[in-house]
């Protein structure tokens, strides 16, 4: 047993080293000055410049306002997406109704269109709706996604039909089946969906760039771009900004991935 334990952990630790290295390097770069980054061989250990770099970032951009803007968008988007995608995904997985198959395949097909093809026509629709410059333009088009629905649908297939029938007999209507029965079981799936949605919205760049009109409402990714572009590029400052913008993602991941803890399915699926 211990030999197995050691083997498994060694395997994991080797993997971790590969996975973590670029991130570690990002941290190293943000604690050094630019010349240390380009020195040959490059410095691979932490330096003492982080505070200086941090101050430079804060001097150059309004980091915290952009952070708050982004947090607002991301929280609203993620909440709405979790609700609508899980509702639709659950419906597709557990009910048959006229047209359900066709509609499902139609939805799947939308994922196969190169997404960039639709980007700018969507911008013009946004413009006609008068949403330019508003966060509505960032939030509404993305509240229901084929990716999220497909994911929830695949996951929800595991929910036992007996369970739904029993609940129906107890007087649950269809929304009640979703809310009372499915949602608790879908928790790990929702956690993953929350993580990807959060990241997707957080890192989205082109769409906010074209629909936002006011620098005060810019998201973090847009604001960070303003650090780049001076010719005497202060690389360590850019890396510090990048690192700072990554930290909320890590926190978010830690929060949601706790939902992966096993045990929820027990009882729920037993027939």
């Amino acid at each position: 047993m211990t030999a197995k334990k050691i083997f498994v952990h060694t395997f994991l630790v080797i993997g971790v080293i590969f996975s973590i290295f670029p991130f570690y390097w990002l941290v190293v770069m943000s604690t050094n000055d630019t010349s240390a980054i380009f020195a040959s061989p490059p410095r691979l250990t932490f330096g003492g410049e982080f505070i200086t770099n941090y101050k430079k970032v804060m001097d150059n951009i309004d980091f915290y306002r952009a952070l708050l803007n982004t947090l607002f968008i991301v929280v609203v988007s993620t909440t709405l997406q979790l609700f609508f995608n899980s509702l639709t995904g659950f419906t597709f997985s557990k009910f048959k109704f006229p047209g359900s198959k066709v509609l499902f395949y139609l939805m799947m097909a939308t994922m196969m269109i190169p997404a960039q093809m639709l980007l700018v026509p969507q911008f013009l629709i946004i413009k006609e709706l008068g949403w330019l410059g508003s966060y509505k333009a960032l939030i509404i088009p993305g509240i229901s996604t084929a990716f999220g629905i497909f994911w929830i649908r695949q996951y929800a297939l595991a929910i036992h039909n007996d369970l739904l029938e029993a609940a129906t007999i107890d007087g649950c209507n269809k929304f009640g089946l979703y809310w009372r029965v499915a949602l608790p079981i879908l928790r790990p799936a929702l956690a993953f969906l929350a993580i990807t949605t959060f990241m997707g919205v957080w890192e989205d760049y082109l769409w906010p760039l074209i629909v936002l009109t006011d620098a005060e409402k810019f998201t973090l990714m847009l604001t960070l771009q303003q650090l780049k572009s001076v010719h005497t590029g202060d690389y360590s400052m850019v890396m510090t900004g990048t690192l700072l913008s990554t930290i909320p993602l890590i926190v978010m991941f830690l929060v949601f991935s706790r939902q992966f803890i096993a045990g929820i399915m027990e009882g729920a699926v037993k027939s």
């Binding site: 709405l80 006609e128 410059g133 508003s134 966060y135 509505k136 509404i140 509240i143 009109t213």
Partner: peptide, 25 residues
Amino acid sequence: KRLSVALLALSLVLVVSACGKSTSN
């Protein structure tokens, strides 16, 4: 335009709109 506005109105009825703050400049 009319079509999209109509569709949108429909969707807004269904969608809990949690995002005000639309000052278009």
